[in-house]
Amino acid sequence: MNRENGAADGLDWLEAELADTIDEDYEFELSEPALSMEIRKIYRKAHPDTIERQTYFRELIRLQSELIKLQDWVAHTKEKIVVLFEGRDSAGKGGVIKRITQRLNPRIARVVALPAPSDREKTQWYFQRYVPHLPAGGEIVLFDRSWYNRAGVERVMGFATPDEVEQFFDDVPEFERMLVRSGIRLVKYWFSITDEEQQMRFLMRIHDPMKQWKLSPMDLQSRVRWEAYTKAKEEMFARTNIPEAPWYIVEGNDKKRARLNCMDHLLGLVPYEPVPHEEITLPDRVFNPNYERATLPPELYVPKKY
């Protein structure tokens, strides 16, 4: 294959991937017609300069291809990476995690989203339930919320006592230094949105039957206690922004830009390099002249409704 044909094939692949990604994004957003027209008008008016759709998808695919290279490097070098995603409810954490992991191997890059602690876990050392999810060599772990629940929701909602919160602030810098000393690359992101943007996203979820599951009573309380969450966040930054594991703030009002900016920044933090790959060749199919494929009963097949 000559260089011109190779370049053409590459462009064909990119166009195919672009079309496929756009289709997937449409699937994510198919519920939009269920929104009231007024809510949609308000949302579009608030985001008049969002990034062009084609530009967004081209950059998304480019960054995802780099994430695959990062994944290969992590597997090859046995590196260990932990990325924490924190932020207010509806700030866009889940959206960026979905795009980061979309094309990665789930055996290498996995997402941890722990439920509320059980009665037994409440009696344990606070960090204990997070430790089993930390990566071994050659793994990337993305925490969709993390041990910083204690500095945020547990503190604001009264699930942790003032003494427990203070103990957390005393312990977490040393806990994270221990992780870094053990060889873990620890990255901490805070997704920041404005009061008005959160209200708009909550309204969209309320009016969208396919997204109402994302709203919990705790989410609704976060609207009531916006200022309390702000004060908690400010103290969290002041007391846990350590040189070994600093915080990085992602401006999240524009979801698409936030995703691209976060992915690009994460790639820039890790000194990944190309790694050697064995050439893959498809072996010839072995044919057995005495083998006859059995006819399976029709009731085993899924009905062809489409």
Rank of each mutant, 00 (worst) to 15 (best):
I108Q: 04
V156T: 13
P162K: 05
I39M: 13
I51H: 01
H207Q: 14
R99H: 15
E154C: 05
S31H: 02
Q54Y: 14
A7E: 13
H207V: 06
L114V: 00
E227A: 12
Q102E: 13
E154S: 02
E164R: 00
T50P: 06
E292V: 11
V112E: 13
V302A: 15
G183A: 05
F237T: 01
L179R: 03
E166I: 09
R205S: 05
I97W: 00
I206N: 07
E227S: 07
A238G: 09
G10Q: 13
R99P: 13
F287S: 13
K231W: 10
I280P: 11
M236L: 12
G6T: 14
S90Y: 06
P162C: 08
P115E: 10
I242E: 06
D170F: 14
P274Y: 07
A228D: 14
F85Q: 02
A245P: 04
K122G: 02
E38T: 08
P243Y: 03
I81M: 05
V224K: 11
T50L: 05
Y306P: 06
M178K: 03
N288F: 04
Q102N: 08
Q212D: 09
C262R: 03
E251D: 15
W147C: 03
E15N: 04
V82K: 01
P135G: 07
H265A: 10
Y301R: 09
E197R: 00
G94A: 01
R177A: 08
T50W: 09
P132A: 01
G252V: 03
D284F: 15
V224Y: 13
M1E: 14
Y272F: 12
P303R: 02
R53V: 11
E235K: 02
R145M: 09
P283N: 04
I22T: 15
F191L: 14
I97P: 06
I193G: 00
Q102W: 03
Y26V: 10
I193E: 00
T194A: 00
R62D: 13
S146L: 06
K93W: 03
A16V: 01
G87W: 00
H277E: 12
Y301A: 08
S118Y: 06
Q221S: 14
K69I: 01
S146Q: 08
V286Y: 03
E278Q: 11
L282E: 13
